[in-house]
């Protein structure tokens, strides 16, 4: 039979190893520092078309993630998509006239919202609305437009 003290040490080592593994998963794998949740403020933005934007999609400014999409709903009067963005609280000096665009990461990647800063002295705060928006580029529409213009060019040549 193994001595009590040895058992205690081994159990301690086991629990430490397990906690280190958790810590590893939290910090190294999921990057705890950039996934704060709950705190921050919410602003809304209206888009004609959000493409395949989803809840939890990233919100970036200059390529840095500053928040996530927290809710998507549909306005029945204006037929627009109402997207709620949760921006982390340390980014609280975003100009009020910032421009929100929906981008696609790579050709087939997921879609995200990119904010371009405006020049206003006033800042976005809880509940404010971003009025300048640009909808998602839908691949089929672009290809359609491209084919259409090509066809027109062809007609002109003849």
């Amino acid at each position: 039979m193994i001595h009590n003290r040895t058992i205690e040490i081994l159990v301690g080592a086991f629990m430490a190893a397990g906690l280190v593994a958790f810590f590893f998963l939290a910090m190294q794998v999921s990057n705890l520092s950039s996934s704060s949740n709950g705190d921050g403020y919410e602003v809304i933005a209206r888009f004609d078309n959000i493409g395949s934007l989803k809840v939890r999609s990233p919100v970036t400014m200059a390529g840095v993630r500053i928040g996530r999409v927290s809710n998507i709903s549909f306005d029945r009067k204006t037929y627009e998509a109402v997207v709620t963005l949760r921006v982390e609280s340390q980014y609280n000096v975003l100009p009020e006239d910032s421009f929100a665009k929906i981008f696609t990461a790579g050709l087939l990647g997921e879609q995200y919202i990119g904010l371009d800063p405006g020049g206003s002295e006033k800042y976005l705060h809880e509940g404010s609305e971003i009025s300048l928006t640009q909808s998602a580029l839908v691949l089929e529409e672009i290809i359609g437009q491209f084919l259409f213009s090509k066809a027109e060019e062809g007609n002109k040549v003849e």
């Binding site: 190893a17 397990g18 280190v20």
Partner: peptide
């Protein structure tokens, strides 16, 4: 703890 070890 074991599952975390496994994943890590």
């Amino acid at each position: 703890l074991l599952a975390a070890l496994f994943s890590a």
